[in-house]
Amino acid sequence: MPGDPARPNEDFASVALPASGQGGCLVVLDGVTPPRGDTGCLHSVPWYTARLGGALTELTVSLPDVPLSGALARAIARTSEAHAASCDLSHPRTPQATVVLARWTEETFDYLVLSDSALLLESPDGAVTPVLDDRLSRLPREALVSDAVTDAGYRNKEGGFFTAAADPAVAARAVTGAVPRARVRSLTALSDGAARWTERFREGDWTDLHTAVRKNGAQWLVDRVRALETADRETRAYLGRSKTHDDATVVRVELPPAG
Rank of each mutant, 00 (worst) to 15 (best):
Lys157Leu: 14
Arg141Gln: 13
Arg135Ser: 12
Ala169Ile: 04
Ser146Met: 04
Phe162Tyr: 15
Pro168Glu: 09
Leu144Phe: 04
Pro180Arg: 09
Ala195Ser: 15
Leu136His: 04
Tyr154Ser: 13
Leu190Asn: 03
Ala169Thr: 11
Ala195Ile: 06
Leu139Lys: 05
Ala195Trp: 04
Ala194Pro: 07
Ala195Lys: 06
Ala165Tyr: 01
Asp134Trp: 00
Phe162Gln: 04
Val184Asp: 08
Ala182Val: 08
Val175Trp: 11
Arg138Val: 01
Leu132Ser: 07
Leu190Tyr: 06
Asp147Ser: 05
Phe162Lys: 03
Leu190Ser: 09
Asn156Ala: 05
Asp192Phe: 06
Gly159Leu: 06
Gly160His: 04
Arg185Cys: 10
Leu139Arg: 03
Ala148Gln: 12
Arg141Lys: 08
Ala194Met: 03
Arg185Asp: 07
Leu187Ile: 12
Ala172Pro: 00
Val179Pro: 13
Ala172His: 14
Thr150Ile: 00
Pro140Phe: 08
Ala166Trp: 06
Glu158Pro: 04
Gly159Cys: 09
Ala178Arg: 15
Ala171Gly: 01
Glu158Asp: 15
Glu158Arg: 12
Ala195Met: 03
Asp133Cys: 10
Leu144Trp: 03
Gly193Ala: 10
Glu142Pro: 00
Ala152Asn: 06
Gly153Cys: 07
Arg135Cys: 00
Asp192Tyr: 06
Thr176Ser: 08
Ala194Thr: 04
Ala169Tyr: 00
Ala148Asn: 04
Thr163Trp: 07
Ala172Cys: 04
Phe162Arg: 09
Ala169Glu: 14
Tyr154Pro: 02
Ala172Gly: 13
Arg185Trp: 10
Arg155Met: 11
Val175Ala: 03
Gly193Tyr: 07
Leu136Ala: 14
Leu139Ala: 05
Ala189Phe: 02
Arg135Pro: 01
Ala164Thr: 01
Asp147Cys: 01
Ala171Glu: 13
Phe161Pro: 05
Phe161Thr: 12
Val179Ala: 13
Thr163His: 11
Phe161Leu: 13
Gly159Thr: 03
Asp147Pro: 03
Gly159Phe: 06
Arg138Asp: 13
Ser146Ala: 09
Ser191Ile: 02
Val179Thr: 11
Ala165Lys: 15
Asp134Asn: 11
Gly159Ile: 07
Arg181Asn: 09
Val184Thr: 06
Val145Ser: 14
Arg135Asn: 11
Gly160Ala: 02
Arg183Asp: 15
Ser137His: 09
Lys157Met: 10
Phe162Cys: 05
Thr163Glu: 14
Leu139Glu: 13
Pro180Ser: 11
Asp134Val: 10
Ser186Tyr: 01
Ala194Trp: 02
Asp133Arg: 07
Leu132Thr: 07
Gly153Phe: 08
Val170Arg: 12
Val179Gln: 10
Ala178Pro: 01
Asp134Leu: 14
Leu136Val: 03
Ala178Val: 11
Pro140Cys: 06
Ala178Cys: 14
Leu144Tyr: 02
Glu142Arg: 10
Ser191Phe: 04
Phe162Ala: 05
Leu136Gln: 09
Asp167Met: 08
Asp147Gly: 02
Gly160Met: 11
Arg185Gln: 15
Gly193Gln: 09
Leu139Ser: 02
Ser146Ile: 00
Arg181Ile: 08
Val179Cys: 12
Ala189Asn: 05
Ser191Pro: 05
Arg181Asp: 11
Val149Arg: 14
Glu142Trp: 06
Phe162Gly: 02
Thr188Ile: 12
Leu132Val: 14
Leu190Ala: 02
Arg138Leu: 13
Asp192Thr: 08
Leu187Ser: 14
Asp133Ile: 09
Lys157Thr: 01
Ala194Tyr: 05
Pro168Asp: 08
Val145Leu: 05
Gly153Leu: 10
Asp133Gly: 09
